[in-house]
Nucleic acid binder design. Sequence first.
DNA 1: TGGTACATGTACCACTTGGTACACGGAGGG
DNA 2: CCCTCCGTGTACCAAGTGGTACATGTACCA
Lengths: 186, 186
Amino acid sequence: MEGKDPKRRLLEAAVDQLARTGVAGRSLRQLAADLGTSHRMLIYHFGSMEGLLVEIVREVEARQRAALADLDGSGTPEEVARAFWRRFTDPALYPNERLFFELYGQALQGRPGTEALLPEVVTAWLGPLTELGKSHGLSERDARISARLGVAVTRGLLLDLLATGDLGAVNAAMDRFVDLYVASLQ
Amino acid sequence: MEGKDPKRRLLEAAVDQLARTGVAGRSLRQLAADLGTSHRMLIYHFGSMEGLLVEIVREVEARQRAALADLDGSGTPEEVARAFWRRFTDPALYPNERLFFELYGQALQGRPGTEALLPEVVTAWLGPLTELGKSHGLSERDARISARLGVAVTRGLLLDLLATGDLGAVNAAMDRFVDLYVASLQ
DNA sequence: TGGTACATGTACCACTTGGTACACGGAGGG
DNA sequence: CCCTCCGTGTACCAAGTGGTACATGTACCA
């Protein structure tokens, strides 16, 4: 166990740490102190602050993809949606999601090193979700539109949940959305 | 014209400027240079960097409320939704929306001075939108859930639009949502 | 006219920042 | 046994940071 690159170990620890503290005002030194190393090491392994940020973004994206990979086509879209939503609303994931939205916000403002997030942040999900819709009888076009809407609803309600903490309310809203969707299929 | 407080003028100019540059890595001095003044002035009027941030957040929130105030109860929920969406997707508003989401992300991470955004970011919209639903025959509970879902869809699709720039695709998704909603009423 | 309050600028402070120079140590290969 | 390479630490640097001290200008009121 732990048979990893020191760089790899540092990166994973850094992402976990930044999920807790945020990335906005953190300096190399603060982060290094949190990780029990020196800022010199971060520069050594990642070249610069921006180089580190690039790999942080890449890792956050990779974790999203890992979640995506678990989306197997078994089950109706309704079942898949409910299962996914239950997973996303696990409080253990809140820090990761906060970090995701923080980086999203910075990427929208063009912070160097974060640009890589934007091109894939929506489209990466569209492919698998569109397939799911098609495999349950939707046309390509309909499936694509529904996929996009599903991503938006999920993200919007997650933003709500992280801000308000009102799990009951967002669950009710997601139930409503799934009901609307299911009803439209009949 | 321009008969305003110098502080007020500075604040509005600062929000406009930060909407363009982002708030993340900006220093007092950079911002002051952009505004054609000295960082000393920002400290003088706002007390500190954090004091400035507090007022920035307050102003962004106030602008949201101003948009909200335009939401008059006339028209069906469908008409109101479409009109609102058309306004939100005006490219002239993109910078303000980017700033909004950036501050949202930082508030989620607990950046001092931004906390004020979170308690109201969802609930401020729930009241008026719930009234709208009720005035068109929904129960209190149903109207409230639909309002919450509507806010989430709008924010989620806005995030999509700002990241991808694909206005056609997000418009199609919003149309789909409104259609789903309207169909459920019959 | 004089004074008082607000607005602004200049110069400075201690501190932190990202990044670099350099030295050290240990592991593996010749 | 030495040499080279990787990982790490310490010490340092110039630049920029938020914040303060203090002087100055300008308007308005007595």
